[in-house]
């Protein structure tokens, strides 16, 4: 099985030093995925691999042979935005926008983790079903930094799509 990016088959780089991030941006010209710290600390380069979020800067592309990568360019349905993209616009979930693709890919991965029952550092009862409140969300999204400080809008946008309605109302209030 070859490496695919947003459904398209992609040849692996000849040079094993090429990161998945560099492959996306420099070879495939998918510049939606951003390069921030390039050391795994900021989350701007977050993409989904087989539905799981990773930081593409610390991923050697050759290690991802046979995997299905989804980037920010691959989450909309044609001209219809992904619900999370629409929510980020609705809630002003960004200022400069540089961290936004990583935030959105990360939140999609986070929702899948919640669906599988993954606990977090702030989960009180490791055996209980987790409800996504603002504390859980902030902990689960701590790998994505926003230097503009748009976090309130980011939290509101993600809760709008993945949180229980009552939590959303508390945040809105």
């Amino acid at each position: 099985m070859p490496l695919t990016v947003n459904g398209a088959t992609v040849p692996l780089p000849d040079d094993p030093r090429v990161s998945l991030l560099d492959l996306l941006r420099d070879t495939l010209h998918l510049s939606g995925t951003k390069i921030g710290c390039n050391q795994g600390a900021c989350g701007a380069c977050t993409v989904l691999v087989d539905g799981e979020r990773i930081v593409s800067c610390l991923a050697l592309a050759v290690q991802y042979d046979g995997r299905a990568v989804t980037t920010i360019e691959g989450i909309a349905d044609g001209e219809t935005l992904h619900p999370l993209q629409a929510a980020f616009i609705e809630h002003d979930g960004f200022q400069c926008g540089y961290c936004t693709p990583g935030q959105i890919c990360s939140a999609i991965g986070m929702a899948a983790e919640l669906g599988r029952g993954m606990p977090s550092h702030v989960t009180g009862d490791l055996a209980a079903t987790v409800v996504l409140d603002a504390d859980e969300l902030r902990e689960r999204m701590s790998g994505n930094l926003c230097r503009c400080g748009a976090h309130n809008g980011i939290v509101a946008a993600i809760l709008d799509v993945y949180g229980p309605a009552k939590v959303d109302q508390e945040v809105a209030a």
């Binding site: 930081v55 606990p119 550092h121 689960r140």
Partner: peptide, 16 residues
Amino acid sequence: LARALLAGASAQIRNM
């Protein structure tokens, strides 16, 4: 062990 793992790194890095 679960709590130590969940206290480490970020969700993205824990997936890797």
